[in-house]
Design a protein around this nucleic acid. Structure first.
Length: 264
DNA sequence: AACACGACCTGGTAGC
DNA sequence: TGCTACCAGGTCGTGT
């Protein structure tokens, strides 16, 4: 599920619920990383930050709980750490009996405990600018794209170019910008590239709002009631603009959806 | 260096 | 109804 907007919703909820709480224990269920227990206990939650799709729970003493939800993870506070879903993978026990639970049906999500500098340095090296941050300017985006041979969709999915876009919002942004996902990013006109930059910001801003509104914690993640998806998972349906059928093609081992009429 | 592809995991569902 | 096959909002490691 989680791309930047959903991860942002998770972070905001977690920040409100966990900031100030003390960590009194940690249990790694099924599999996971043992360092969480060793490094986190006895510290206090100072805050929760997001970088791309990564969640950073800042603890006292310069330690960060780093979580990536991958495809199907979720992270939220439960009132009693003894009562958790069968899909819980890590439980961080908080003072007062509450708990932060990392939950994932597919067991792909990861949590680890690291020194602040270590995780910050790693993410800074791996990730491009925050698309909703000041560093994500049209000029920086164009500079990154210049000379690049990647198809537009793969370029957007690459976290080194923009941090936080995934399969859905990359497809939606390309639809709004009317760009064929197969088109080499370096061959897109400056005007269209500027338009793409703008719709990335627009799509993600809209999606953050709807994700925050829709995200309840356990279970419900979906923001599609609020965020209208034009092409994603709509193979064969008529395009909302030109009524041609949406098609699905494989790209980088994933499904890309687009309108062959509008996106050129 | 750039790309394709399988691996990681398990659940949901379309189709027979 | 029951089984199978395929698909999944992400990333990493390996091989070409």
């Amino acid at each position: 599920m989680p791309e930047l907007p959903e991860v942002e919703a998770v972070c905001r909820k977690l920040r409100g619920a966990a900031t100030g709480a003390g960590v009194v224990g940690a249990r790694v269920l099924r599999c996971g990383t043992e360092r969480v227990a060793g490094q986190a206990v006895g510290r206090t939650v100072k805050g929760v930050e997001r970088r791309g799709k990564h969640i950073l729970v800042r603890l006292s003493g310069g330690v960060t709980l780093h979580t990536h939800l991958r495809m199907s993870g979720n992270l939220y506070v439960i009132p009693d750490h003894r009562f958790h879903s069968v899909y819980a993978r890590v439980i961080v026990e908080l003072g007062g009996g509450r708990g932060i639970v990392l939950e994932d049906k597919r067991a792909l999500a990861r949590m680890d405990a690291l020194a602040d500098e270590e995780i910050d340095g790693r993410l800074d090296a791996e990730l491009g600018p925050e698309p909703l941050g000041a560093a994500f300017t049209p000029e920086a985006f164009a500079a990154r794209a210049r000379g690049c041979r990647q198809p537009a969709k793969l370029f957007l999915m690459d976290q080194r170019n923009v941090a936080g876009l995934g399969n859905i919002y990359a497809a939606e942004a390309l639809f709004r910008a009317r760009i064929d996902p197969r088109k080499e990013i370096g061959r897109i006109s400056p005007g269209k590239l500027r338009g793409l930059h703008a719709v990335i910001v627009g799509v993600l801003s809209d999606a953050v709002e709807s994700a925050v509104a829709a995200y309840a914690g356990p279970g419900a993640f979906h923001s599609e009631e609020n965020f209208p998806v034009a092409v994603y998972d709509r193979e064969g349906e008529p395009c909302v603009t030109c009524h041609r059928r949406i098609v699905r093609i494989p790209q980088g081992g994933r499904s890309t959806y687009f309108c062959p009429g509008c996106q050129r």
